[in-house]
Design a binder for these strands. Structure first.
Lengths: 189, 189
DNA sequence: TATGACATGTAATCTGTTACATGATTAG
DNA sequence: CTAATCATGTAACAGATTACATGTCATA
């Protein structure tokens, strides 16, 4: 009955388990794709899977099929699906931005298959709002402290601002993409 | 005699301790500036300081001055300074990029005061090389998998590419800044 | 004198890392 | 047959989070 918070890795696993997979499959995803930011070590993944299973979010079934190496395939439960949706659709906060784009982008990447493209647009809009405020705040912070900083520190700060500005422009690009798609599909609706 | 690897927080503390500070001062930096990505909790910072002290990288002295609240001010030792320099000046690897810009930018921000502007330029050049290769690799990865992805996943991937491209452009901006400064100071040398 | 900010710390718990261990199956 | 790969795990440890504990000093 403990209300444990699910760490980022847990949500990454939930998202990937939209397609039923074994622990080994998931490790391969982490070691071979852009998701290598997450550890592919068995000491991280197998315990994480067991925690998710104990929380009732996924269920593992040992395959007794053809090849017959013991291989446990995990699937989302309905509780797991709703937890995943909740994580994806909650509004983007300032804190989310401070902790990094990584997790926000993971949420967005899973959004379409898990919740649908309407939710994807909403997530983008929420992100846009948060980013606009954040970029403005960063500009202000720079004004206040730039005189007392060495050049490298000021440049590093500018890098952060540029990065977030670029991120903001991407949200516009992404929103435009969805708008176009919407027109293609549903002008007459 | 343990050769423990210093975690990111440890280096952040070493960099900040170029200016002698108490644990409380450091916590305030983490809670109030752009460095709020690091935890400002006492349970993280005081133990980290003690580890650095045990490793001989910093030394704390209890102030017996005027105000007389007990307040321990930490300073870098010569060993700490050289460890900080080593961290800052080592070449930027692919792995550094995968784990995030954060730590690279921290190294750069501390670079000028800790090692000097020549080292800052070298760090930027190393970063530029690594980024060019990384962006190229990301483009290739996108080509290989984009057909099998939902729109949101593809857009998320594009976001990563754009971010790194933006980062690359920033390195050019930063290098140009140093070039200009170099001319102002040393044309006749 | 009581409240709140200053300043430092500890203990329980959780998660992740590193490194090792185990066994089944397939390729050479 | 033996080496590599598939597939799963465990144990020891390090580090972070959370929540609590302690005491000092200023001020209202």
């Amino acid at each position: 009955m403990k209300r444990q918070k699910i760490p980022s890795l847990g949500y990454a696993l939930l998202g990937l388990l939209q397609k039923p997979s074994s622990g080994y499959d998931l490790r391969k995803v982490f070691s071979s794709t852009t998701m290598r930011t997450y550890s592919d070590s068995p000491g991280a993944i197998y315990p994480a899977l067991r925690r998710l299973e104990q929380a009732g979010l996924i269920r593992g079934v040992i395959e007794e099929g053809s090849g017959l190496r013991r291989r446990q395939v995990f699937r989302l439960t309905s509780k797991g699906i709703s937890e995943l949706k909740k994580w994806i659709t909650r509004p983007v906060t300032r804190e989310d931005l401070v902790w990094g784009q990584q997790e926000i982008m993971l949420r967005f990447a899973f959004c379409e298959t898990a919740v649908g493209s309407t939710a994807a647009v909403e997530l983008l809009q929420s992100l846009e709002t948060a980013l606009q405020a954040y970029v403005a705040a960063l500009h202000e912070e720079l004004q206040q402290i730039k005189s007392a900083m060495p050049a490298s520190a000021r440049l590093a700060f500018e890098c952060g601002i540029r990065g977030n500005q670029c991120f903001l422009e991407w949200t516009h690009h992404a929103l435009a993409t969805y708008e176009k798609e919407g027109k293609r599909k549903g002008v007459t609706s």
